[in-house]
């Protein structure tokens, strides 16, 4: 659900960068503490898979897109902070190499997808995984898809209210929450089912190895 460059106001992306900078610093320390011979290569190939899945995008009427992410899988295997670092790096590479997403929207995308999505995935997995492993994995994939969609829809939907001309015309993203929430979140409720199934399949496969 990348937000393209140019649709978020400085009032949004400047504070988002400040917030993300602190989170990136903490994630970098966590990554260096756990750096060993297996983590880096495993993280790289999982990021590459997420990158390939994220490259397939479908525009939505609300001005954004849907795609698979693999964030639930990364979060269950590596935890939220390393996933946040990896997803941030993938988003940066996507913006700079493929022109998907952008620099001004990077912190919002990273916080929503990388931190919000992975934290929700880990929480869902820990709560439901105690009862049933597969239910926990499904919840991880579903939440990693739906929560970022809600966050991104919220950020987009407040743009007309926080950045507009004197006569009320929008300066950045033009649609309010009444449009962005259904346009972005509803498709992701369905996409999350596919992501949940993919998470069950892939993590179960990885655990058998």
């Amino acid at each position: 659900m990348h937000v393209p460059d140019g649709f978020l106001s400085p009032q949004t992306y400047v504070p988002a960068y400040a917030l993300a900078a602190g989170a990136w610093a903490y994630a970098a320390r966590t990554l260096q503490r756990r750096l060993d011979e297996t983590l880096l290569p495993r993280l790289a190939v999982l990021c590459a898979l997420g990158f390939v899945l994220m490259s397939v995008m479908l525009p939505l009427p609300g001005g954004t897109s849907v795609h698979a992410s693999g964030i639930g899988i990364l979060a269950v295997v590596f935890g939220p902070w390393i996933t946040f670092a990896a997803v941030s790096l993938v988003l940066l590479l996507q913006a700079l190499v493929f022109g998907a997403g952008g620099i001004t929207v990077l912190p919002v995308n990273a916080l929503a997808m990388g931190l919000g999505g992975s934290a929700a995935a880990c929480l869902g997995y820990r709560l439901l995984g105690r009862v049933d492993e597969r239910a926990g994995l499904f919840a991880a994939g579903w939440l990693a898809t739906v929560l970022p969609a809600v966050l991104v829809a919220g950020v987009l939907g407040v743009q007309p209210a926080i950045a507009h001309t004197a006569d009320g015309q929008p300066l950045f993203f033009p649609f309010g929450l009444s449009v962005t929430l259904p346009a972005v979140v509803v498709p992701h409720l369905i996409l999350g089912v596919g992501e949940g199934l993919l998470t069950i399949l892939v993590v179960s496969f990885l655990r058998r190895r």
Binding site: P41, A48, V52, A86, L89, L93
Partner: peptide, 9 residues
């Protein structure tokens, strides 16, 4: 990490 990711992509 970026080098590995790009090669794997």
């Amino acid at each position: 990490l970026a080098t590995l990711i790009l090669s794997q992509v």
